[in-house]
């Protein structure tokens, strides 16, 4: 088999979507909740597709995608807070069409109730598997602050989640 010469060729983007699409969607769901998660996923991968040919060889593709998803999620949260100020309306959750689509765990709802920084640090550390140093680079602040935010979130989840779990 031919081996790729590093720095010259890149994987087809299709492989990037297949490999990292599910993780990025879990991140978008954990940070944004149900309403905007798929929009943010779509915007993340479109932005990534656009920039992909210029990505440096040997880049950590997962961290690159999570960083883009982080920014796209913030855009949605800002837009949502403007909506609240202007219209005083909270967007409705899409109706369930019978298929759970991976939303059946009560843990998503427990996550949604956490403050933003806790949702972000939990998503990047526990759902993606990033070390806290890398999490801190994305969310800002120190490594310790990122670790504390995640720990506070986990402590709350331990109180709220098992009770809400009906399975």
């Amino acid at each position: 088999m031919a081996t790729k010469s590093i720095g010259v060729s890149q994987q087809p983007f299709e492989e990037i979507v297949a490999e990292h699409g599910p993780t990025v969607l879990r991140v978008c769901r954990a940070v944004l909740g149900r309403v905007d998660a798929e929009d943010a996923w779509s915007e993340t991968f479109l932005a990534a597709l656009s920039a992909y040919p210029r990505l440096r060889a040997n880049s950590n593709i997962e961290a690159w995608l999570v960083t883009i998803a982080h920014r796209k999620a913030l855009d949605h949260l800002r837009a949502a807070s403007r909506r609240l100020v202007v219209t005083d309306e909270v967007p409705e959750r899409p109706a369930k069409d019978g298929s759970p689509e991976g939303w059946e765990s009560g843990l998503w709802e427990a996550l949604e109730a956490l403050p933003l920084k806790q949702r972000q640090t939990i998503a990047y550390h526990y759902l993606v598997g990033m070390p806290y140093l890398q999490v801190a680079e994305i969310v800002g602040g120190s490594e310790d602050a990122a670790r504390r935010a995640a720990a506070d979130g986990i402590a709350t989840l331990r109180k709220t989640f098992p009770k809400g779990e009906s399975r």
């Binding site: 879990r26 798929e38 779509s42 479109l46 991976g102 843990l107």
Partner: peptide, 29 residues
């Protein structure tokens, strides 16, 4: 705790992939 989160189902993956194809095509990417 997070292993309890269900995996993303096939229908969602397909729908998102199709949406990416559509927006990428429209954007000339």
């Amino acid at each position: 705790l997070f292993a309890a989160l269900p995996t993303i189902d096939e229908a969602v993956s397909r729908r998102l992939h199709q949406r990416l194809v559509d927006v990428a095509n429209a954007a000339g990417l």
